[in-house]
Write a protein that binds this DNA or RNA. Structure first.
Lengths: 214, 214
DNA sequence: TTCAATATACATTCATGGATGTATGTTAAA
DNA sequence: TTTAACATACATCCATGAATGTATATTGAA
C-alpha cells in the first residue's frame, strides 16, 4: 500500500504491539509466528519488519511499553510519604501494587513473562526480572531499616529478613495467582495475607487502630 | 544399527531422557530440537521416535521420571510424625524440602518448568503445577488446622491464612532463587526466613528451646 | 505557494534452511 | 523366522529474513 502519515504509522506500530501481546498470550512467545501477529494487527509481515528488527525486538518493545508503569509502581513506594509509620506506608504501598497487578494489561504481561516465554537467544527475560527484583528489594530494604531504627519492629525480626520475607510473600502470591487468575481475587487474598504478616512483625503499641473486621 | 537387548533399549531410553533434560535446560523446550536431543544421547532421531511419540511425549516422560520424588517430598511432610508440636513438624519438613530443591536433578527440572518452557499445545505444564500446588496446600492445611486445635498458633493468625502465607514464602523464595541459583544458598536463606516466620506465628510458651544462634 | 526530490510506510515475492513425521532399510535378539 | 530396536532416507511444511516494488507524505528550494 501507500505511505501513511506519521500518526497513522504510529498507530500501526501500536496495533502491532497490541497484537503481539494477544498472540504471545494465546500461543506463547515461541509458537507465535510473526505472520500471526501481523495478521492480527491487520497488516503484513512487511509492516512488522519495518517497525521491528525481529521477534526479540518486538518482544522487547512490548515490555518497554509497560516498563514505566511497572517501575513507577516500585519507585512510588517511597513516594507515599510516611504518613504514620514506615511499616504502615509499606503495607499500603504493597496493597496498591497488588491492585495494579489485577489490571488486564499488567496481568497479561505478567502472564506472558511467567508462563508464556522462555530463554530466548540473546534476549533474556530472566535477567530483566532479576534487575526489577533487585531494584525493588533495595528500595524496600531501606524502608525496613528505617522501621527498625524507628523501633517499629518486634524484637524477633531484623530488617533484612523481614524485607526478604516480604518480597517472597508477594512474589509467591503473584505466581500462585497466575496459576489460575479466576480462582480468587489477588487483592483480597493479598490484603489478608499482608495485613496479618504486618500485624505479626509490627509492635502492638504502634498499631494505628484495632482492625475489627474479621 | 542392530537390535539391542531389552536392558540396552531401556538404557538408551534413559539416556534420551537425560539428554532431554540437558538440552531443554540449555536451549529451552521450544528451541530444543529433537535432533539436538538425539545427538546428545548418542543416537539418531529414529531411536527417539521409537521410544516417544513426539516432543510433548518426551517432555511428559521427563517430568514423570521426577514426579514421584517430588510428590513423595510433599506427602512425606505428614509422615514426619509430630515429634513435639505440629508446627515444629511443619518447620522441619519445609527445611527438608528446601534441601531437596538444591539437588542438581530437582533443581534442573524446576528451572526448566519455571524459566524454560511455555504453554505447549495440548500439554500444559501450568496445569501440572496447579495440581501439585493444590495437593501440597491441602496436605499442610490439615496440619495447620491441627496446630490451631492444639492451641499452638498465636491469636492473630488463623490456619487458612497461615497455610497460604507459608506456601507463598516457599514459592516466592524458590522463584527468586531460580533467578540466580549461584547468588546464595537456598537452604541457608530459607532456614532463616522459615525459622523467623514460625517464631512469629507460634506461641512463645510452646517453643521447644531458645535458639541462641543469631 | 508550488513542485520536484527524497524518505517513508508499507505490500509482495523469493530464497533458504531447518524441523517434523513417516517410510523404509538393517541387524541381531528372542 | 520373526520382530524389536534402532539408522537412514525422504517428503513436506513453514517460518524467517531479505530483496524488491510502490505509492504517498514530507521537505526544502525556487
Amino acid at each position: 500500500m501507500a505511505r501513511r502519515t506519521r500518526a497513522e504509522a504510529e498507530a500501526t506500530r501500536e496495533s502491532l504491539l497490541d497484537a503481539a501481546e494477544q498472540v504471545f498470550y494465546d500461543k506463547g512467545v515461541a509458537r507465535a509466528t510473526l505472520q500471526d501477529i501481523a495478521r492480527t494487527a491487520g497488516v503484513t509481515r512487511g509492516a512488522l519488519y519495518w517497525h521491528f528488527k525481529d521477534k526479540a525486538d518486538l518482544f522487547g518493545a512490548m515490555l518497554e511499553r509497560v516498563r514505566m508503569p511497572l517501575e513507577d509502581l516500585i519507585d512510588a513506594i517511597p513516594a507515599g510519604e510516611r504518613s504514620e509509620s514506615v511499616l504502615e506506608t509499606l503495607r499500603m504501598a504493597s496493597l496498591l501494587a497488588l491492585g495494579q497487578m489485577e489490571q488486564p494489561r499488567i496481568r497479561r504481561i505478567h502472564s506472558i513473562i511467567i508462563h508464556r516465554c522462555e530463554v530466548f537467544g540473546e534476549f533474556d527475560p530472566v535477567a530483566m526480572l532479576r534487575e526489577l527484583s533487585e531494584s525493588a528489594s533495595a528500595n524496600t530494604l531501606e524502608l525496613f531499616r528505617q522501621a527498625r531504627d524507628n523501633d517499629e519492629l518486634v524484637a524477633e525480626v531484623d530488617a533484612e529478613t523481614a524485607n526478604q520475607t516480604f518480597h517472597c510473600i508477594l512474589r509467591g502470591l503473584l505466581h500462585h495467582w497466575h496459576l489460575d487468575t479466576d480462582a480468587y481475587s489477588l487483592s483480597e487474598t493479598g490484603t489478608r495475607l499482608i495485613n496479618q504478616w504486618f500485624e505479626l512483625i509490627g509492635k502492638a503499641s504502634l498499631k494505628p487502630a484495632a482492625r475489627p473486621g474479621s
